[in-house]
Design a protein around this nucleic acid. Structure first.
Length: 278
DNA sequence: CGCTTTTATCGCGCCATACA
DNA sequence: TGTATGGCGCGATAAAAGCG
């Protein structure tokens, strides 16, 4: 196992703070701004960081951090961030695999932050207990997971031209996770911190379809899998895929695919390849 | 101008019912 | 018992109006 997480944690500054690697970083640095704002010098360029801004810097990068040089409108200083310094052979490969941006704007969602906190907790076990209970193997896997998760967050957010607001990404994710359960527009909007009308409007504007339409697609794809590969009745499938009732599932299925669900299932079982049935 | 509230329309989801 | 389909009330949606 060749990953070494040198240090990681969450820091929050309310006073001026400076950090500098004028001869270049000795390791990889990941830093996600979650609150407030600050400024950074990256390879000689000054950038302003606010919530959602992610730094991914390889060893050797000349780097400096400045908190409090540009205060908020009311003169207060606040900056919160998750950070991680590490060296790893796997990371070298990962970094070389495809061009990684040094700085990117991502949605700092709870799952990502949870992953980061997990890493922090595991690292603390390792150092506090004198290397006792912390598992280097677990840290190694957590590091890989975190990197891949960050990579996905970056590509998902890097939309052409105008990236959708975080709130829209949250709505989308909420729908993907909850469409097969009891799902209400109101819940999704609340989860994203928006009013229902605002959520509906923003979603349509950036995704190009209504939230319910998107949820229906998620439900239908889940239902198709169950119809193909399980023996659940269509009633059961309708229920556990988020269609409240079979009649509604039937209506949507037939409208979308032109054939009732039972007929589709029969055809699929007769022709196991299952291709071009719809 | 960005956002919320209001309002009118539309479609989801529940019920009834038929059929095999 | 499992599947197919129609009717209908209320929630979801979009457009308009209101508001700081």
């Amino acid at each position: 196992m060749s990953s070494v997480v040198l240090t990681c944690g969450y820091s929050y500054h309310t006073q001026r703070f400076h950090d500098h690697y004028s001869t270049g970083l000795p390791c990889y640095l990941f830093r996600l701004q979650t609150e407030g704002r600050c400024e950074a010098d990256i390879a000689g360029r000054r950038v302003s960081l606010e919530a959602g801004d992610l730094l991914m810097l390889p060893p050797g990068t000349v780097y400096g951090l400045h908190v409090g040089e540009q205060n908020a409108a009311d003169g207060s200083i606040a900056s919160g961030d998750y950070y991680l310094l590490t060296v790893s052979e796997w990371l070298d490969d990962w970094w070389a695999r495809a061009g990684k941006p040094l700085i990117a704007r991502i949605d700092p969602d709870e799952k990502l932050l949870g992953l980061w906190r997990l890493m922090i907790a595991e690292k603390r076990r390792q150092t506090d207990d004198g290397g006792g209970t912390g598992s280097p193997e677990l840290i190694d896997y957590l590091l890989r997971t975190l990197c891949l998760y960050l990579e996905r967050a970056v590509t998902e957010t890097a939309a052409p031209s105008a990236p959708p607001p975080f709130a829209v990404l949250r709505l989308k994710r909420f729908i993907e996770e909850n469409a097969t359960g009891r799902f209400k527009i109101d819940d999704a909007a609340r989860h994203a911190g928006l009013s229902v009308s605002r959520a509906v409007h923003l979603f349509k504007e950036h995704v190009g379809r209504t939230m319910m339409d998107y949820a229906t697609e998620v439900r239908l794809s889940a239902a198709l899998e169950r119809m193909k590969y399980t023996s659940f009745s269509l009633h059961q499938i309708a229920e556990n895929c988020g269609f409240g009732e079979y009649s509604y599932f039937h209506k949507v299925f037939k409208q979308r695919y032109g054939t009732p669900p039972g007929v589709f299932r029969k055809r699929f079982r007769e022709n196991e390849s299952g291709t071009n049935l719809l």
